[in-house]
Amino acid sequence: MRVYLPCTLSALARAVEAGELGPAPLTGYAVTPALTEWYASGDTEELEYVALTEAARASLRLLAAERPAGDAGQHAEPVKNEDGSVWVPRRVVVAAEVPDGTLTAGADLEERATVRLSRPVPMAKVASVHVDDLYAVPDVGAAVAALPASDAGDDDARFTVDGAEAHELMWYATQEIPHLLHGDH
Results as ranks from 00 to 15, higher is better:
111 E>K: 07
23 P>C: 02
47 L>A: 09
32 T>E: 04
79 V>I: 07
13 A>W: 07
64 A>L: 12
130 H>F: 09
22 G>K: 01
90 R>L: 03
24 A>V: 03
35 L>N: 07
117 L>C: 03
179 H>C: 06
96 A>D: 06
181 L>P: 11
62 L>Y: 08
180 L>V: 06
139 D>Q: 08
27 T>Y: 10
124 A>L: 13
138 P>A: 09
167 H>I: 08
157 A>Y: 03
143 A>T: 09
13 A>C: 04
107 A>C: 00
50 V>D: 14
35 L>S: 05
104 T>G: 01
185 H>C: 06
144 V>Q: 02
94 V>I: 14
25 P>T: 08
30 A>G: 07
144 V>T: 06
135 Y>P: 02
25 P>R: 05
179 H>S: 15
17 E>D: 14
167 H>P: 11
25 P>S: 11
142 A>R: 15
145 A>K: 01
137 V>W: 04
135 Y>C: 08
43 D>L: 08
174 T>Q: 09
35 L>F: 04
104 T>A: 12
16 V>M: 13
172 Y>Q: 13
82 E>K: 00
84 G>L: 07
83 D>N: 13
88 V>Y: 02
27 T>H: 07
96 A>K: 05
28 G>K: 02
40 A>I: 14
172 Y>W: 10
135 Y>I: 12
145 A>T: 01
110 E>A: 09
148 P>A: 07
175 Q>L: 02
103 L>E: 04
176 E>H: 11
147 L>R: 00
10 S>M: 02
72 A>K: 08
66 E>L: 01
114 T>R: 09
151 D>S: 12
120 P>R: 12
60 L>R: 04
171 W>D: 12
174 T>S: 10
19 G>E: 11
184 D>S: 15
108 D>I: 05
80 K>I: 00
109 L>E: 13
56 A>E: 07
113 A>H: 00
130 H>P: 00
115 V>T: 06
182 H>D: 15
42 G>H: 15
171 W>A: 14
56 A>V: 07
58 A>Q: 15
153 G>A: 08
76 A>L: 03
156 D>L: 13
12 L>P: 11
86 V>K: 03
29 Y>G: 02
97 E>S: 12
134 L>D: 15
141 G>Q: 06
183 G>C: 10
43 D>W: 05
12 L>N: 05
56 A>Y: 07
177 I>V: 15
2 R>Q: 14
182 H>Q: 15
